[in-house]
Simulated scan of single mutants.
Amino acid sequence: MATGRVLVIGLDPVRIPGWDPEPVVAAIARGQARFAEHGIEADLCLVAPEEHAERQIVEALTRREYACVVVGGGIRKHEPLLELFEKVVNLVRRHAPGAAIAFNSGPEDTADAALRWLR
C-alpha cells in the first residue's frame, strides 16, 4: 500500500467555456475513486486560468502536507497555458518542496501517476 497524501492540480472543466464538462467531470470522479481503491487520500485543486489560479494553488499546497502533487494534462498539454504550467511547477517547488511532482496522461490514470512516486 502506498503512503502519503496527494494533491491533484488541474483545470476545472465546469469553468472552461465552450464545451461539455460532463465527460471530464465523470473521468475525474473515476480517477479519484482509484485513489480510494489504493487507500490514498487525494485532494483536488481545480482551477480556471483566468480566475486567480495561482492563489487557489498556493492555498491548496499550504493547506496540508503532500507526498506527491500531480499536475493534470489540461494544464500541461494546452500550449496557451504553458506559462500557467511553469507557474504550477514552481509553486509546488516553493510551497511543497518535499512533494514529488507527477504527471498523468488523463483524469483516470492520476492515481497511477502518483503511485509511481509513493511506493
Rank of each mutant, 00 (worst) to 15 (best):
V70T: 11
V25F: 04
A60P: 00
F35C: 04
D112H: 07
A99G: 13
V92W: 05
I101H: 01
T3I: 11
L61Y: 01
A26K: 05
C45G: 04
L91V: 12
D20R: 15
A113M: 07
E22L: 12
E37N: 10
I57S: 08
R93Q: 14
R64G: 08
A42I: 04
R119I: 12
N90Y: 14
E86C: 05
A102R: 06
L115G: 02
V69P: 03
V92P: 01
K87H: 12
L82M: 11
E86Y: 12
V89N: 01
R64E: 15
R15W: 05
G10W: 10
A99C: 04
Y66H: 03
R76G: 10
P13C: 08
E50I: 07
A111D: 07
Q32K: 10
I9G: 03
R15T: 13
R34L: 11
V24W: 03
V8D: 00
E79H: 13
Y66A: 02
G4Q: 12
A114I: 10
I101N: 00
G72M: 11
E59A: 15
G72Q: 11
I101E: 08
R15H: 14
D112S: 14
R93C: 13
Y66S: 00
D43G: 00
A53C: 05
R94N: 07
E65S: 14
I57H: 09
H78F: 12
P13L: 01
V69C: 00
D109I: 10
D112R: 05
